[in-house]
Write a protein that binds this DNA or RNA. Structure first.
Lengths: 222, 222
DNA sequence: CACATTTCAGACCAAATGGTAAAAACCTAT
DNA sequence: ATAGGTTTTTACCATTTGGTCTGAAATGTG
């Protein structure tokens, strides 16, 4: 609680960039630990993950891990904070000046790439939601709402300009989120049924074009 | 392991129906426990849920709970098995003779109703997927694949008959699953953004018609 | 090269928690 | 009513596991 334990978790050393040998190694190690934690947390939950296992996966000792992160909870919080940055960035690309269809197509692609390249992030985010997102309550609530609201406004402008059919922008965004993230979060189910996953290039492209097709054209015959 | 512990977990008493006061109370209690377990497991995960808490929520003592279910794992398995029945039933309604558009619209509604009326089931199913579905590996894999394959065939027949635009039936099914379940699993996020949830009748209907619209018509202006 | 600082590993501890044993309370059939 | 079985409670144990302590190794610096 109160102990300061030398300098450990304070990144006072270097702002960024090269840094000394020491601070460099320190960062590398922290990254390795966070990576391992992300992987295990996202599979077994925080409670279901033993600190020892994270340490083993990161190739450090348990004590060493606790040296970098004061507690498992603290580690989880830091992992979650980093995750959020990766997670919300793509939505920023929505812009009224851009072509509506093109932007949506691109967004679907980016989100599906995220599901392919960062499945652990997707799972952990999903898990946090299932838990009721006690952690994100503050960090996420207000900034997320503002971000989404602003993008919903863009979509509404597109609709007003006749660039899109009239849909509720929120439901459109939810649809894109859910469909793309599904391929990461429900990967085992999708593998059970199709024997394929997003790492398979053809399957990725086929998934992408099908999603784009459904969301843009729908399945009703024209 | 080996002990038979009287009759407890063996439902030898009554096949079904009324039954004696005792067997009736027994069933009620088991149901209460499973209900409580479902609720807590789906929020905090199996590891994150203490048997004591389940017992408290079900209004029985911890030991009494262990009398009905030999272990937490066992309880989880039984909860999961019951859940699966509820979960896969709706897909059965797909039938080649029926109208394609109508059937899909109905399916979306039924799935969304499931998200509204059984959110805990949705969450727990989702969580099991995130964990890699070690439990469902056997129970789910083969029967699920067969069920989905057969329904995919129905969809393909509709497409061949010009009743639907050409889409990959699997991706269509995944799309319906993901979009509808999203409103249960990501409920907190949706509440953060819209301040509403499926329990709100208007929001439910609006969600439903938007999903039906997107999936059937797409968002491209006609 | 001596000294100070940072980093690490193995032993250890205490709390949390799943599960057991045995006796008490309770039904139900005769 | 009461014997025989069933359900519930009380007391307890054993294991798991997050986190600490201690001393040593590595590293940087004047």
């Amino acid at each position: 609680m109160s102990s300061e334990k030398t300098t450990a978790n304070s990144d006072t050393s270097q702002a960024l960039g090269g840094g000394t040998k020491r601070s460099r190694a320190k960062l590398d190690k922290k990254n390795a630990i966070m990576q391992a934690a992300l992987e295990l947390f996202s599979r077994h939950g925080v409670k279901g993950t033993r600190v020892e296992k994270i340490a083993a996966l990161a190739k450090v000792s348990k004590t060493n891990l606790l040296y970098y992160f004061n507690s498992k909870e603290q580690l989880y919080i830091e992992v979650m904070q980093r995750l959020l940055q990766v997670w919300l960035a793509p939505l920023a690309s929505f812009n009224e000046e851009q072509d509506a269809i093109q932007t949506i197509n691109d967004y679907i692609r980016v989100k599906l790439e995220l599901s392919r390249d960062h499945p652990a992030e997707s799972r952990l985010f999903c898990m946090e939601m299932l838990h009721g997102a006690p952690l994100l309550e503050d960090q996420l609530k207000s900034p997320l709402k503002e971000l989404v609201d602003s993008k919903a406004a863009v979509i509404n402008a597109w609709i007003a300009a006749g660039k899109l059919a009239p849909v509720d922008p929120y439901h459109l965004i939810f649809t894109i989120w859910s469909t793309t993230q599904h391929y990461a979060d429900f990967r085992v189910q999708i593998e059970s049924i199709t024997d394929k996953n997003l790492d398979d290039h053809d399957f990725f492209e086929s998934t992408l074009s099908n999603l784009q097709n459904i969301i843009l054209q729908g399945v009703r015959p024209s």
